[in-house]
Deep mutational scan, measured.
Amino acid sequence: KLATQLLVDLAEGCHTHHFNSLLDIIEKVMARSLSPPPELEERDVAAYSASLEDVKTAVLGLLVILQTKLYTLPASHATRVYEMLVSHIQLHYKHSYTLPIASSIRLQAFDFLLLLRADSLHRLGLPNKDGVVRFSPYCVCDYMEPERGSEKKTSGPLSPPTGPPGPAPAGPAVRLGSVPYSLLFRVLLQCLKQESDWKVLKLVLGRLPESLRYKVLIFTSPCSVDQLCSALCSMLSGPKTLERLRGAPEGFSRTDLHLAVVPVLTALISYHNYLDKTKQREMVYCLEQGLIHRCASQCVVALSICSVEMPDIIIKALPVLVVKLTHISATASMAVPLLEFLSTLARLPHLYRNFAAEQYASVFAISLPYTNPSKFNQYIVCLAHHVIAMWFIRCRLPFRKDFVPFITKGLRSNVLLSFDDTPEKDSFRARSTSLNERPKSLRIARPPKQGLNNSPPVKEFKESSAAEAFRCRSISVSEHVVRSRIQTSLTSASLGSADENSVAQADDSLKN
């Protein structure tokens, strides 16, 4: 292990032709098999893994070397290190390495390699500790012929580059190093199909959405987006994914797998022009299946994007999809995704031109529960009313008269009656009930004795009459309010007539 670390330190600071010789020695160290011998017992696995620490030291050392060589000349050094790393990870899946030390190597290698970024000039870069990406002036992410390196360097940008540029090249004859992302992409596909350690798979799935944002990485080298989509959909639809995973937390289920895969599918929607129609349908189907899991909100957001990006695919699945959405409970976490999906859909009339009455009724059935102001915040309630109004205007004229009683009944049950079921009123009724029952229970537990009763009969009569009056008032709060309003209006009217009579009498006395 110490000798391997010494080789790594020497290679990191070497800029001459001896660098390749040092890498040859490190490569021989990495070539050791990580498969346990067949006769190895389970209690000896930890000791055997400790004997392979030099392999881990070599791989982690290459990660440090690549981070240094990416910004220094010659660029061919970075290319050689990158290829060695990718080849080593491929061996893991070729020979099915399952030892804990092998999983640790893959975890740290993917953690580093999935941080690679590219700008519009195809320059590769890595983020620093502050998250700012520094791009290399010597390494690009696409394949290029050595003699055409300078031509590639002087080509115009596709868009303004992001991030601070690296140091300027030493001279005009500098050759750019090619670090094609397709090599890593193929290893990522192998990981999605064969990885057995949940920690490694979770890391890859968590980092892929951010990497897919940099389309330069994908399009400048032959990366098959179709295969990526197929691998992701197979993970969700195939039963073998959960069987092969180990190291998963207790209670791990298909729902947890959906939570990890759906963000990658959402990021892949922007590549729909490069996906086969069959793959697009598979993607939409997987998102529909996710509606029954805890990732339902993410799936609804993804389907909203699909309705804009892939209208030809979503239009066929939309009638059944809208009916499925009615089975989702009206909760605060689902309110905004569902209502925004319906609001977006209302502005795309070509998608729902074939809707029948059942689909329009489903839209109103989804939106009406969110009009309850005692359960949802003001934004959700306003958005629900907006969706109902928009869809009522957009639905066909023959359907409107049939939906009017349905909508008014839903609004009455969710908006008007919600004020009668407020917690304050319920607590008031509970308190009044307890007050009504309390005197009775006290009389049963403690019967009054005439000799020891010091309270006069008049006081008892007053208290009983007050309790009886309170019971009468607490029967119905709404009736009490109505009666008080009527009494107030009658009182004001009587006072007004009394004032008029007094004024008339005063005038008569003055005349006399």
Results as ranks from 00 to 15, higher is better:
154 T>W: 14
138 Y>E: 02
214 Y>Q: 09
173 A>Y: 14
237 S>L: 12
242 L>H: 08
234 S>N: 11
234 S>W: 06
213 R>Q: 12
238 G>R: 09
249 P>D: 09
97 Y>D: 01
187 V>S: 06
145 E>G: 11
157 P>K: 13
106 R>I: 00
97 Y>G: 01
233 C>M: 07
243 E>W: 05
201 L>D: 00
242 L>K: 04
212 L>Y: 00
127 P>H: 04
179 V>L: 12
192 L>T: 02
123 R>S: 03
72 T>A: 09
104 S>V: 11
231 A>W: 01
197 D>S: 06
100 P>M: 03
198 W>A: 01
97 Y>T: 02
224 S>A: 09
216 V>G: 06
128 N>Q: 09
120 S>T: 08
91 L>A: 14
241 T>E: 06
187 V>K: 01
191 C>M: 03
159 S>G: 13
74 P>C: 02
116 L>Q: 04
149 G>P: 12
245 L>Y: 06
246 R>I: 08
216 V>M: 07
237 S>T: 13
102 A>R: 00
58 A>E: 01
221 S>Q: 03
191 C>E: 00
221 S>I: 02
193 K>S: 12
57 T>D: 05
124 L>V: 15
193 K>F: 06
71 Y>H: 05
184 L>I: 09
211 S>F: 05
233 C>Y: 05
96 S>V: 09
53 E>F: 03
211 S>V: 14
200 V>I: 08
137 P>S: 09
234 S>D: 13
142 D>I: 02
134 R>W: 04
154 T>N: 11
225 V>P: 05
248 A>Y: 12
181 Y>T: 05
246 R>Q: 09
184 L>D: 01
97 Y>C: 02
83 E>T: 10
67 Q>K: 11
196 S>A: 09
157 P>R: 09
105 I>C: 02
152 K>V: 14
247 G>I: 05
233 C>L: 08
230 S>F: 05
218 I>Y: 12
98 T>H: 09
51 S>G: 12
76 S>N: 08
104 S>K: 11
71 Y>E: 03
181 Y>N: 02
81 V>T: 06
193 K>P: 01
161 P>V: 13
236 L>H: 02
76 S>M: 08
243 E>I: 07
159 S>F: 09
151 E>G: 10
126 L>Q: 03
232 L>N: 00
156 G>P: 09
101 I>H: 02
157 P>T: 12
249 P>C: 11
60 L>A: 15
95 H>A: 08
66 L>K: 01
93 Y>D: 00
92 H>S: 01
222 P>V: 04
189 L>K: 01
165 P>V: 11
153 K>T: 12
193 K>I: 09
175 R>W: 06
93 Y>I: 00
71 Y>D: 02
99 L>P: 01
59 V>E: 01
104 S>P: 02
142 D>M: 03
75 A>M: 06
206 G>F: 08
77 H>L: 02
159 S>P: 10
187 V>C: 14
134 R>L: 06
142 D>C: 03
100 P>H: 04
123 R>K: 05
82 Y>D: 01
59 V>G: 03
69 K>V: 01
248 A>W: 04
118 A>I: 03
124 L>Y: 04
155 S>A: 13
126 L>W: 05
162 T>K: 13
59 V>S: 04
84 M>N: 03
179 V>Q: 02
151 E>F: 12
220 T>A: 05
186 R>E: 14
179 V>I: 14
228 L>I: 04
137 P>R: 13
225 V>M: 11
